[in-house]
């Protein structure tokens, strides 16, 4: 599963650690929500960056208190048809102020890339290498958007209004 960041396939700095395995001393680690919630303060106080895999059926608000101290949050798409993590991503970015890496994992396909980016994801565990290679093409297909999200694009309604202002001088 190639990891795509900033439009390119990159090596994963994080080591995914099973619940019963020892955490690496000084390497970035990615752990489960259950493990994290058992002792969040201690885990977050480690010297190395910490990431949490958050399941899509658990209220993301529970993670909000630590959002500013986590380096990575990985949200899960058990299949691409299960869209719960899309809402979790927007809440993390737009409501809880999470600025770390927001990673889409699971069945992540080319055809969702644009949606994922719009919802605030910036790292993608692409299921297929061919999709990873097509990342830039897929995320530049659309030039206009109807909805405002936290991605900085103006919505169509906002854009039209702005164009009127320019036209009116």
């Amino acid at each position: 599963m190639p990891l795509v960041k900033n439009g390119a396939v990159v090596a994963d700095d994080f080591i995914t650690v099973a619940d019963d395995a020892q955490l690496p001393g000084d390497a970035p680690a990615l752990i489960s929500a259950t493990r994290f919630l058992a002792d969040p303060e201690a885990l977050i106080g480690r010297n190395s960056p910490l990431g949490v895999i958050w399941p899509n059926n658990r209220n993301i608000a529970e993670l909000a208190p630590w959002a500013d101290r986590l380096a990575l949050i990985a949200l899960v798409f058990p299949t691409f048809r299960d869209g719960r993590a899309h809402s979790q991503a927007r809440l993390l970015r737009e409501r809880y102020g999470f600025r770390g890496e927001l990673r889409a994992t699971g069945q992540v396909l080319r055809d969702q890339f644009t949606f994922l980016v719009r919802n605030g994801f910036d790292a993608f565990d692409a299921k297929k290498p061919s999709d990873a290679a097509a990342f830039n093409e897929a995320t530049h297909r659309y030039t206009e958007f109807y909805q405002p999200t936290g991605d900085g694009h103006l919505s169509a309604l906002q854009l039209r209004k702005q164009r009127h202002k320019v036209a009116a001088g």
Binding site: F80, G83, H86, R90, F115, L116, N119, Y146
Partner: peptide
């Protein structure tokens, strides 16, 4: 239309 959050 093509709502990024509510297409699935």
């Amino acid at each position: 239309a093509l709502h990024p959050e509510f297409s699935f």
